[in-house]
Nucleic acid binder design. Structure first.
Lengths: 235, 235
DNA sequence: CGGGCGAGGATTGTATAAACTTTCGCCTGT
DNA sequence: ACAGGCGAAAGTTTATACAATCCTCGCCCG
């Protein structure tokens, strides 16, 4: 690399380059651009983000800890491929945690938050209308994250982030039909219950929402796929 | 301690040098040898374990992700100092998760597991009799981890490992009395319920156990302490 | 013709060195 | 004497070089 414009603190908001790598790869996985089993070579990613292997390695280790990347010793990093057993565990955990999260969200509700939720619903509807499956998948997960942020419980939020990321992989692997109508109405119903501060209804709707997602899965055998790699990462 | 009795190879990755560092520091924190706010210099730890800073850094990043170490940019790594708000979140999460874990443990119970639990209870009693506060604290946490391993749910296990480690710091910071009698009898009661496959009793006892631990805490103000560093790490 | 085996290439694991940031002591000016 | 700033030292962050390991592919032997 001959002349790379290396000014000091060149990017104003990119205070942490590791985070940018991590979030870039995470987004690619959550939008189903990176498929389970894909190899994530260190040089490859480093080239894309203009970073050295040290930083890429740090980001990959964080993703491994979040459960969406597997690191095999002396082999490299791969997008995780959850087994059906993993899938059942993830959704059981979500059924346990998310109703409680909604409870706390209702305790912490403010008009400002209602606005953010409604705005998010609008984005979801628009993406669905536009037929943008990738944005739909991403926004669908972000809805749950938003509710968790609203609850103000950082521990639940951290746990849920992991669960959502894994869920995205699970849905990609085990979905029966590619019906992209994955519950925007459910989300609207949950928001309505939050707005009315009706905890019981909110919990019930969250639970049935999760049940429905899991019901659409076919958790029988692990799918053996080999899939193409990622120049799809828009750095 | 003359010879270290650390020969259990329960973790298959224990041969990894990063894991050895991570587990060594974790053990030091869980046994209250490393106190909240203590600076964990990279050179310092690397010297102790005969490893280069690269490996130390990897281990510290993992610990940061587990929430028991804070990494401040350009400043270094420090043992985490949970706030009272953190403490409330941790114990709420434990009250949510652990009763469910016990349920699953009962579903997966075998005579072999009962043996392991009873043996653990014996170790706890012995340490308490011996007045070994450090071993007591560590074993008390390990009991909960053991039940989670028994349940066979890797996700709950991962979550609980984090919660236990944070709990240890919380107890150290906010305990009212230094009463080391922290519920070996409770643990025995839980084991008895598991043995009888009585889910309702097991859940109830786990819940009251956690309540009692939290009731002994004084969650008012964050304690502002500066504490000595660690040549206490017996590598 | 099929299967085992070994050399070469590629990729990861580890260590070391360079660059930047913060900290703290010390010196000067008022 | 005290406040403020300059400078060196310590420590962290990043990059690069080196070592170890694994995979591939061609070759040789049965």
């Amino acid at each position: 690399m001959a002349a790379k414009p290396r000014r000091k603190s060149d990017a104003p908001d990119a205070s942490d380059r590791v985070s940018r790598i991590r979030e870039g790869v995470t987004a690619a996985i959550l939008e189903h651009r990176l498929l389970p089993g894909t190899k994530l070579g260190e040089d490859e990613i480093g080239e894309i983000y203009g970073a050295s292997r040290t930083l890429v390695r740090t980001a990959l280790q964080q993703l491994a800890h979040e459960g969406i990347v597997n690191i095999e010793k002396n082999r490299g990093a791969f997008v995780a491929r959850p087994t059906p057993a993993d899938a059942r565990e993830v959704f059981e955990a979500r059924r346990l945690i998310e109703p409680t999260i909604v409870d706390h969200a209702i305790d912490a509700v403010t008009p400002d938050w209602i606005d953010r939720l409604q705005q998010h619903l609008a984005e979801e509807r628009e993406a669905e209308l536009r037929g943008d499956a990738r944005a739909s998948v991403r926004l669908s997960g972000e809805f749950h994250r938003l509710v968790a942020e609203m609850s103000g419980h950082s521990i639940y939020l951290g746990f849920l982030k992991e669960l959502i990321a894994r869920s995205s992989l699970i849905i990609l692997l085990y979905r029966r039909h590619d019906t992209p109508a994955c519950g925007t109405d459910h989300h609207a119903g949950i928001v309505a219950a939050i707005r009315k501060r009706d905890k019981q209804a909110a919990r019930a709707q969250m639970l049935s929402h999760l049940d429905e997602i899991e019901a659409e899965l076919f958790l029988k055998d692990p799918v053996p796929d080999e899939l193409r790699l990622a120049d799809v990462l828009g750095a």
